[in-house]
């Protein structure tokens, strides 16, 4: 368990509001872990604290109490350049919107994390082409984001998230702005990466269909883990989807 866990969150607590302001406890006490090659979904009602949790796991925000360990390192203690380097090397992100810099071409966008690490240009080109082939987006490489559709943009974002072979890939509603066909394609892509590359994925979503691609689902309610569903090896995806819907039904009561 210890050796192959990518994320370990211990007793995470988050209170919003500065000294004088009114306090709001978004997360009370959350502990869980993600193992190598895991595909975890985080679900919950709006305002339940999903984004808050993700921001802390992804080092975008610091917890009020508790620790987050990624690849064996306590990231809540990281600061400045060490934190930046850690992000650049170990993690990939896909957001709901504004993933790409609109003044860079797709290829430049994908290669950006590698540039930041100071990789030689030739190597960057090779890696970008390889990953573009894998995700079937080679024909989009020379285009600017303004020339792409929403789904295409998310695929580019996906490629960029994977380009540095991260330990873990975070997504906050990456399918939120996509129609069901584009969403299905992106999710299929994530699933494929998860299985082939053994990259752990943590996906925040409010949508049961997206969640059904995961292997494990954590339900958050009022800042705590309310329930956890695990997809059985024998279970089909539609079957799991139904189970999630049922769970959401009981959960929201």
């Amino acid at each position: 368990m210890e050796n192959n866990s990518v994320i370990q969150a211990h007793h995470l607590k988050k209170v919003y509001g500065k000294q004088q302001e009114r306090k709001y406890t978004a997360l009370k006490d959350v502990s869980f872990s993600v193992t190598t090659g895991d595909f975890v979904g985080v679900m919950g009602a709006s305002g339940s604290g999903k984004t808050t949790l993700l921001n802390m796991l992804a080092t975008f925000d610091r917890p009020t109490a508790g620790t987050v360990e990624i690849a064996g390192q306590d990231v809540t203690q990281l600061k400045g350049n060490a934190l930046a380097d850690f992000r650049a090397k170990q993690m990939g992100f896909i957001f709901q919107d504004f993933n790409l810099l609109e003044n860079l071409t797709s290829a430049q966008n994908i290669g950006l994390p590698l540039s930041l690490q100071g990789k030689p240009a030739k190597e960057i080109d090779q890696i970008v082409i390889k990953i573009a082939q894998a995700l079937e987006i080679e024909n989009l490489l020379s285009k600017y984001p303004a020339q792409l559709s929403g789904g295409q943009k998310q695929r580019i974002a996906c490629a960029r998230a994977l380009v540095n072979q991260p330990q873990i890939l975070f997504g906050d509603e990456p399918t939120g702005a996509l129609d069901s066909k584009a969403a299905r394609e992106l999710l299929g892509l994530l699933q494929q990466i998860n299985q082939k590359e053994k990259t752990a994925i943590l996906l925040v979503t409010h949508d049961a269909f997206s969640a059904s691609y995961c292997r494990r689902i954590i339900f958050i309610k009022d800042g705590e883990i309310g329930h956890e569903l695990v997809r059985q090896a024998s279970q089909s995806r539609p079957d799991f989807y139904q189970q999630i819907l049922d769970q959401l039904g009981t959960f929201e009561k």
């Binding site: 400045g80 350049n81 930046a84 650049a88 993690m91 003044n103």
Partner: peptide, 16 residues
Amino acid sequence: IPRYELLRKLGTHESS
């Protein structure tokens, strides 16, 4: 603003 925010999230050093 969002551009630099994104760059930071991707792990760019503050100094860069």
